[in-house]
Computed example of a mutant assay.
Amino acid sequence: MIKPDDLDRFKTVLANMKKATLQSQRNAEQTSHKLSKVKEQLADVKAAHQTLKKDHQQLQDSQQKSQKIDYAMRDMVKNDYGVSSIKQSDVEARVVLYQLDHNELTKNKTEATSWLKALTTALNDQETKIDYKRLDWGINQVKALINRLVELAHDLFKGMTR
Rank of each mutant, 00 (worst) to 15 (best):
K19S: 08
K53S: 03
L152I: 10
V77S: 06
L156T: 13
S84G: 00
S24V: 03
A112M: 07
T110N: 14
M1C: 07
D5S: 15
L123W: 10
D44R: 08
R162D: 07
D44G: 07
Q25T: 05
R134A: 05
K3T: 09
V96P: 04
H56P: 07
L116P: 08
M1K: 14
H33N: 09
K133S: 01
K18I: 07
Y71N: 09
A144E: 00
Q63H: 13
L42F: 08
K65Y: 03
K11Q: 10
K39N: 10
D136T: 13
Y98V: 05
K46R: 15
L97Y: 05
D5R: 12
I69Q: 03
L35K: 06
T128K: 02
I139K: 00
A47N: 12
T12L: 08
K107Y: 02
Y98E: 06
R94Y: 01
D125N: 12
H154C: 10
V38F: 11
K18Q: 11
D131Q: 14
L22M: 14
D6F: 03
V150M: 02
R94C: 07
T121P: 01
E92D: 14
V77A: 10
V96F: 07
D70M: 05
M160T: 13
S62C: 09
T21F: 04
D155K: 15
I69K: 05
H49E: 05
S66D: 12
N79S: 13
H49N: 11
L145W: 02
L14W: 05
V77E: 04
L22Q: 07
E111T: 06
N103K: 15
N108S: 14
Y81L: 12
T113K: 11
H102Y: 08
Q126I: 03
D8I: 12
K39P: 04
K11L: 07
M160R: 13
Y98R: 15
V45S: 04
S84A: 00
N16R: 15
S62F: 14
K34W: 11
D61P: 02
D61L: 03
D44S: 05
P4E: 13
L52W: 05
E111H: 01
S84M: 00
L116R: 15
E151F: 06
L156Q: 12
I139A: 02
G82S: 04
Y132W: 05
L7C: 08
Q58C: 08
S36N: 07
Q23R: 04
N147Q: 10
Q67L: 14
S85R: 00
L145M: 01
A93W: 00
T21V: 11
H56R: 15
D75R: 15
N16C: 11
N27F: 00
S32Q: 13
Q30D: 04
E40T: 06
K109W: 05
V45H: 08
W115A: 07
T120M: 08
G138H: 09
L59T: 03
T121R: 04
S32P: 03
Q126T: 14
V77Y: 08
K53C: 03
T113Q: 10
D155M: 11
D55I: 04
F10H: 04
A43G: 06
S32Y: 13
Q50T: 12
N124R: 11
L149R: 15
K46H: 13
D70A: 08
L59S: 01
A144Y: 00
